[in-house]
Computed example of a mutant assay.
Amino acid sequence: MTEVHGAETRARARTRRAIVEAAVRELARDAATSLGQIADAAGVGRTTLHRYFPDRAALLDAVATETVARLTDAQARARLEEGDAREALLRLCPEYLLLGDLLTLLFTGVVPDAVLDGQGAAPLAALVARGHREGSIDRELDVEWAVGVVWAQLYLAWATLREGQAARRDVVPMLVRTVDKALAP
């Protein structure tokens, strides 16, 4: 009986994950997409979607939770505590770029920074403030401005990739170089 229950739990987790991933893709494409369209994209019926997420708000909460988890993972991969702040920030940019459609949801406010439990702009702001103290980031650029520069470059990089205008291997070095030159003291 336990083996059956475990398989059932794994199947539920896969279905839930498929719905959340479909929601991310579809909401990035069109923030007003319907739950029915998300269910179709996930390969499940609308009734199944509602079993997991009773309403749009519950699904958006799950998308926000996924966003926080992926932002946190990106920050861990970037090793923010290693090296100076500018080096850490330059490692973080390509990691954030891997967030893909979640970036669109952040840029468009579908997942507002306020619900991200401090995982959106806050780590960038902390890095810039650290960089100001260390002298690795231009002190004449206030924290908010510098964070805005990083998000703007991430937006440009993601839009370039999403539209197929360049390959990731070409976009990442341009992103890192632009942010580096913009923030260098």
Rank of each mutant, 00 (worst) to 15 (best):
V150A: 05
G131E: 07
T160F: 02
E87I: 00
A182D: 01
A157M: 03
D55A: 09
A121F: 09
T65N: 08
G109A: 01
A13D: 15
A146P: 11
R17H: 14
A159P: 01
H5I: 15
D73P: 08
Q75A: 14
A78M: 11
L175R: 03
A184S: 11
A114E: 10
A64R: 10
R17W: 11
A23S: 09
G83N: 02
A57Q: 11
D61P: 07
P185G: 06
A31C: 10
L60R: 05
D117C: 09
I19Y: 08
P123C: 01
T15C: 10
V143E: 12
S34A: 08
G6T: 14
T67V: 00
T48Y: 11
F53A: 06
P112W: 00
W158R: 15
T48L: 13
I19C: 07
L27H: 03
A182F: 05
S34K: 07
R51A: 12
E8A: 15
S34I: 12
F107Q: 01
P123H: 02
D40A: 15
Q37N: 12
V150Q: 02
A167M: 07
L105N: 03
P173V: 06
V20L: 11
L60I: 01
L98D: 13
T65W: 10
V171C: 04
V4E: 13
W151S: 00
R12I: 14
V4T: 13
D142R: 07
L92A: 01
A31L: 11
T104Y: 00
E134Q: 13
D73W: 12
D170Y: 00
L71N: 03
M174S: 08
S136W: 05
R133M: 12
A121L: 13
A182C: 07
V115Q: 04
V143K: 02
V147S: 04
I19G: 06
L89I: 01
R70P: 09
L89A: 04
L92S: 02
A78H: 10
